[in-house]
Design a protein around this nucleic acid. Structure first.
Lengths: 153, 153
DNA sequence: CGTGAAAACTTAGTTCT
DNA sequence: AGAACTAAGTTTTCACG
């Protein structure tokens, strides 16, 4: 598997910012012909470096203004408990991220909801019913100082 | 500003999963003509519901296997201290997210690096030099149980 | 890697309901 | 108003040099 060269990196940087850029424009940006760009992109997709493309939506327009991080400690470390917990979490669409953590808490969840009230409803209907939970601590984000999906390349 | 109807939502769902889908295919998926899809997408973009498009890259291929959450408490709440801190954080590309938090800690950072060693280097070179920091606690993610950018629509 | 041609897609104008 | 149809202009895609 070929390692990434400098032009690959510039292509990836551009595609992270503008996922629908044409090969012609991309070629201008990185100093290559359109077909050469196309070939490299096809290779990067085949290698799995590019996992796919996505539209980025505005959370405000979709009633998801509020981000909450939830630290959860389970009542035990048995595999069955972890598996049951993870399966249940995966079924909650408001949970964008769920990490098994080293250190104090067992899991860290990132949740997006409309507002504090919506979080209370989510808590009652879903979070409080998650299996194997011993302790739960929720922290609200007051402001997203920085929030990007762009990996440094 | 028109509220989203059911077809809009299906279009958004599709575009979050497959940002480069053609209007023809999208039309098939949601039961509309290609041009009708195109018009709706143009409207959603103009309204700001769709913020843009991005290629999603694989962290493993880019030496970013490790996610670390960093809780930071500042030495004070003066606006100058917060501003200086935020400006400095924004300059570290490895920090994908930075939230001003309610509750215990002041800030929560999400950092992506190659491994623990790379985090140690980042800590020495950047995090430990952030202005106004009183306390810092880093927590490593052992496994990403779920990690999506797709908002529920 | 670049050029060029064919196929596919996007985009805008028009008509119909 | 919004959807379908049509046609011109781009873009993708894939030969070959």
């Amino acid at each position: 598997m070929t390692p990434l060269d400098d032009i690959d990196r510039r292509i990836l940087r551009e595609l992270q910012r503008t996922g629908r850029i044409s090969n012609a424009e991309l070629g201008d940006a990185v100093g290559l012909s359109a077909s050469a760009c196309h070939r490299r992109i096809a290779r990067l997709e085949a290698q799995g470096v590019i996992r796919g493309y996505a539209a980025l939506l505005d959370r405000t327009h979709l009633s998801r203004r509020t981000t909450v991080f939830v630290e959860i400690t389970l009542s035990g470390q048995a595999v069955e408990i972890l598996d049951a917990f993870e399966a249940a979490v995966a079924r909650i669409p408001d949970v964008l991220e769920c990490h098994l953590m080293a250190g104090t808490a067992d899991y860290l969840l990132k949740v997006v909801v409309e507002d504090a009230e919506a979080f209370a409803a989510l808590h009652r209907r879903h979070l409080a019913r998650l299996p194997g939970v011993a302790q739960m601590q929720s922290s609200f984000s007051l402001r997203r100082v920085r929030d990007t999906t762009e990996l440094p390349v």
